[in-house]
Design a protein around this nucleic acid. Sequence first.
DNA 1: AAAATAATCTCATTATAAGAGATTAATAAA
DNA 2: TTTATTAATCTCTTATAATGAGATTATTTT
Lengths: 222, 222
Amino acid sequence: MNELGYTRPTLYRYLKSLKDSGFVMSTRGGRFALGPRVVEMDYLSRRSDPLIAIATPHLERLTAAYPCTALIVRWYGDKILCVASIASTVNPVSSYPRGRPMPMGRGAIARSIMAFLPKQRLMPLVTRYAADLRSVGVGDAPDDILAALKRVRRVGVAVAFGEVTPGAVGIAAPILDAGYPSASLCITIAGQHANGELIDRISAEVREAARQISAAAERETA
Amino acid sequence: MNELGYTRPTLYRYLKSLKDSGFVMSTRGGRFALGPRVVEMDYLSRRSDPLIAIATPHLERLTAAYPCTALIVRWYGDKILCVASIASTVNPVSSYPRGRPMPMGRGAIARSIMAFLPKQRLMPLVTRYAADLRSVGVGDAPDDILAALKRVRRVGVAVAFGEVTPGAVGIAAPILDAGYPSASLCITIAGQHANGELIDRISAEVREAARQISAAAERETA
DNA sequence: AAAATAATCTCATTATAAGAGATTAATAAA
DNA sequence: TTTATTAATCTCTTATAATGAGATTATTTT
């Protein structure tokens, strides 16, 4: 009542309706929690997402080849969200399970997507996240940032050192749908394992895997 | 329009509203899919569920000890749903990821819960799922079924051979909240590995783990 | 460039949700 | 066990918001 300003009978009906439809459930002590419908819907979402089906074998292959965490992160226009994640080790340096939001202004994933955005879509983001982008050393002026993103676009992968998780190196390449980024494939490795040669090798693999996923997804949804 | 009988402008608004709130997203070719909000909500649900937090170490311990799949299945009054699942092997005999509904009339999990239900809650289920219960050999008449459930209750675990997944043995014990079953802990092993001695050993572990989870959950939510 | 189709908007009507208050159930105190 | 207190649920009127017909604008297709 305090939070939403509705009266008792109204909230009673809301909660009853949400309970009856399974989106909310009541727990001990008159509390409420998200209900079974949420769990089922995410299951349906996972099962019906062609991107996850296509990408999973690649994530498995990459986590088998390197001690890393492999992620698929979807781009939803204004935010990015991990939708699939596999780790080689039980205690990975970086833990981004499905559903955990990722920052839009920092990290390899965000840059791998921004670098492939058309200028019109990109500029509002550069403005909005200017402080974040500056703080991680991408560039000070908008022109510097744009130049850095142009380099990412040319190379096809973005690399970030501890921008999202301290001590973790992220290597990400965009998954493109009709030329526009719809998601990103990212490999995260522990900073102490990382050296230039390893990063280059993983970068090449990530770029190629993202390319294959893009092509397969495009075939599927065409 | 065919499915729901609404007119075009109404469905346009529905879809727009669902898209704006992120529950639905549009995909290539004018199609729709479940959106980011669903994914985020399931993440919140996982993070805030004390049962999952408490049970996860037990699932990890059990999957490390035996080649099996360990599940936590929540009971929602009228249906049961897997909410947490860990497998020892990459290709487990039985695959029940989070969100996949489980049958209510068959299997160790269903029986482990039904056996601990008060008679008033139990009877409608026995009637509703009589055919299923009969088909898996629990009993023919309601009295036989009740007697079988009473045995489960005395022993504290339910064991089922290939009732849900052919070739899989399920061993389940209820997680009790204030004396009432709220979930079930289940270990699934491949039928060919199973022998009486192993099943007895796992049964004892499952019963004890479920007891510990119940006690810890009760302490948390009291 | 024109035609056809799909997407979005406007507005009057209708249906439905909101809140006030009453009633019933559940819990605590005597 | 009875009474007092609090919480949960229900009923009904009013006000609000959703609906669908049709118009308008955008997007493809020819």
